[in-house]
Amino acid sequence: MSKYIILGVVLVGLAAAPLTGDTYLMRMATLACMYAVMAASWNLIGGLTGYPSFGTAAFFGLGAYTSGILATLGVALPVSIAAAGVVAFVVAAIIGFILLRLKGHYFAIATLACVELLREIANSATDLTGGGMGLNIPRNADLGIFAEASLFFFAMWGLLALTAVVCLVVERSKIGFALSCIRQAEGAAEMIGINSTLYKTLAFALSGVFVAMAGGVYASWVHYIEPGDVFDILLTIKPVVMALIGGVGSSVGAIVGAIVYIAAEEVIWRNYLDFSSGIIGLTVVGLVLFLPHGLGSLHLRLRGKAVTP
């Protein structure tokens, strides 16, 4: 039960951000929600199913461009974001069906290559995406700075709540059971009647949907996207690190990991600008070597128990 309590506290805590009236704090909270969506989504395929996907940025960019292009055509925000989710589901299902026969490093590299490929397509499809010049996304209406910040915060927050609910339902359902079997012994899973291709593809497609919707919200939030920005490799790596912080396999862990990461990154950025990425690197190295099961295993470490990677 405790994970539901943690999730409730996190969501309520984040929702308090607008009450402060501080746009900076709201920006950070929006960013935290965005990454939490991505980390929880990654956990579906990377944590639950055990396929190390590095394709998160592909779906983020796909969603950002789908929604952004629709917005330039005058489509309303909720519709364009829903469309981003649908497009990502279909594309992820196709990619997943093809690539999920690969395992381990091969799968990781194939998904990474998808990010590169989509970025290059966005770069060259100038008519549609504006290419390297980027794409300006019109504002829906002049709301004023704070109202607009609130709008996008709640859009991201709502998306996080939706993602969290879907992830928890999946984890508890027959689908989650099947994914867990596939992670532990795929051959044996097939042999007891699990259609592993179907379930893996479903997990991969679901992991793409919310990431793409977050990309859609992001595009409207920042009003301008370019391929290097929304297909950034860091958008692929950070959610993995966040899930590691929270302990791979738990969606609530991934969400908490995302918030911890964003908060830590901001503190480091503000205080040690020149060395920020190095310090983040040190943190990642320390995490992998000393707390491979996430912050949740800290109490084991402190009690002197062995924590092997």
């Binding site: 012994a185 051959g187 009647g193």
Partner: peptide, 29 residues
Amino acid sequence: FQIVQPFNQMDVVDNVAAALLFSQGGHSP
């Protein structure tokens, strides 16, 4: 399997329940 392939992170009940759940319809976890 000649080399046994249990679902190592599950208990015995869940291992067997998985086989019931996915080989025939009509079951919930």
